[in-house]
Design a protein around this nucleic acid. Sequence first.
DNA 1: AGCACGCCGACT
DNA 2: GTCGGCGTGCTC
Length: 807
Amino acid sequence: MIAKVIVDVPSQAVDRMFDYSVPDSLAKTLVVGCRVHVPFANRPVQGFVAELSDSTEVPKHKLKPVTEQLDLVPPLTEELLQLAEKIKTETLSLHVAVLKAMLPQAMRAKYKKILTVTAEINKLDPLLQPYFKTSEDVIEWDEWIKNASENEIKSAVSSLRKGLLSAEPVVTTKDAAKKRLVYSLKEESRQAMKEAESLQKKAPKQAAVLRFLSERPNDKAYTAQELSEYGSKAALDALVEKGWLAKQETVVKRDPYEGREFESSENLPLLEDQAVVLGEITAAMDEKEHRTFLLRGVTGSGKTEIYLQAIDRTLKEGKEAIVLVPEISLTPQMVNRFKARFGSRVAVMHSALSKGEKYDEWKKIRDGEVDVVVGARSAVFAPFTNLGIIIIDEEHEASYKQEEAPRYHARTVAVARAEHYNCPVVLGSATPSLESYARAQKGVYQLLTMENRVNDAVMPSVTLIDMREELRTGNRSMFSEDLLDKMEERRLKGEQTVLLLNRRGYSTFIMCRECGFVPECPHCDISLTYHRTNQALQCHYCGYRETVPVRCPDCDSDQIRFFGTGTQKVEEELKKQLDGIRIIRMDVDTTRTKGAHEKLLTKFGRGEADVLLGTQMIAKGLDYPNITLVGVLAADSMLHLPDFRASERTFQLLTQVAGRAGRHKKTGEVLIQTYSPEHYSITEVKQHDFLSFYQKEMQMRKMGGYPPYYYLTMLQVSHTDLHKTVQFTEKITDFLRQNLSDTTKVFGPVASPIPRIKDRYRYQVMIKYKIEPQLADVLHELMVSLQTDIARTDLQVIIDTNPHMMM
DNA sequence: AGCACGCCGACT
DNA sequence: GTCGGCGTGCTC
């Protein structure tokens, strides 16, 4: 038997299948989708069995056997393997990169080099001898070299040359299952309890352990911890030694939500709107036909309840469901709603879990222990085999696009999977992406709309505050008079305010007031950000850090001042303006630790603060009845980013955060402070008018030649040498112009908006097209032709067939 | 990517 | 004459 293997080597040059013979010992168990270890270019690597076959073109003397099979149950199903090929061609990624993206981190291979002694230890340099107390001892090269002295390293290198040491590459791939040791009473011991009493005198602890265990059911096993009140680990091990007890390793399942009580909930009654929408979705399920629905429902219209009931229906049919939510809204509040309805049938996958916890959640899915997964982007690859529905909440969110290779979009993957299972996809949002809404207009997706809020709530009133006007009237603070008044008013009434500091593309930097000097990162063309917590200037892109200068490095003036606004500064300022106001601040600093996010929200929910102040992360999913005021500081701060989606993002964020107000009995009010009160991405928020925004933005896209009117592909070229960067980009641009059709436009070379990151110069080429069937082939050909340059020089070329970030 | 193979300069 | 530098090709 021959196994066709995709090897884990990230190079275009080996991005194909390699044939291996399957040894007899594995012939019965090896199946497609398993991970294996194989020898490749004289070293072991991990690979994925993509096909099994009886024949091969490869001459016998070249064929090597599979060394090891890692999975009995293949982690990748046939469906996922097919899907991987599709993603590979669509995103121009390496095949193995896609396969790895489908697995939890813990199942991906680790490679290291191990040094072993081949001669007698005493022949070795005395400097190295301490590392090899016995001939079994090894040095893990990559780890060792970090702490070894220069002389030790030199000595090791020369010992390798002389053959006293040998270097061996090894792959380690493990299932990150958490194991623990447990003790149980052996069957035969039970009959001999009388003899056990004889231990009493010499070994009272051991006797106590036996007595305890004999009073319990036989098969129950306990950890040393659980038995510690009867006898220590030493006593337990002695009993094992004497044959009384059995000691075993068992796999424990971590449960990130262990010990948490979830109040169970039933299906809620639906409004008419909701019932119609649910009806359409279940009809599609009945027809067993794939359909993609775009559910546009205003904030507070009860989209989540629709998801829950659609899933309920799916489960009743014995099928499974995937729910994708944006990373930042994977809040406990969200998770709780699913856990409350479906209990232990839900797995949760998000970045706050440890690698091991993620693995366990993943395994629950593969082993069929759960049938619903709620998770961020990568949960779209959940290894279900009988999918009944895929739901993408807040479908417009940028986090559904992966910004590293493989650059897939979860929406595209979801639709591909749903086509395979003939099941529906539901894309939900109050502010759909332009792409999706345009597809719905064209009938590619089926549009469903909910214009009414549940709880008889009305949409909050939105007021725009022109900050230029405030400035003219002499208010130089970051709060308008109106906003301060209203916040104070809420506090007196015992109601709450959500305050959004929109600071994307707007960070705190320092500037010399005398000469205008702004400290920049020496490795990236970007100004340094001021971090108050460690009193340092830090680069957002490479992590470079320096201390805050006391005097201007340029003109020696001491007039160095901070600009921009951070949440900390807002908090201080607000405390100054409104004496005694209680503020909860949510930003990266205050939510870094595990569970902090939840704690802060619970606190706010209990009414222990008047104001919840935060960045984007507070814009989503918050649902507290007492929030009656939402304030937005600097609404337009991301409007001027070099990104054709800037208006769309602004509208979406403002609508989302406005939706936090007045979701229940009390009506809500929203105050938006801005310097561009006439911009449509802001004015349309005031009217709650998605359609009007959509039409205006579509006009802009049409004029600019952007999606959804045109498709984009971006090539990002980088190199440490500026001249080479430009040269290569020119070469690439020429190649594209020559090989693509005349109607396709190739823009470039241009320097990237951030022209240098980590000492690499960055240029880009943008391709705009309507129909270009050759594109994938041409780009592939291009990459093949650049292969040697990429491998031998430090040239890097990134292709993004659906760019979301223009930086 | 990472390794062997092979062809050139510098040195025991 | 040998060691080790790095350019080149290949990996089932």
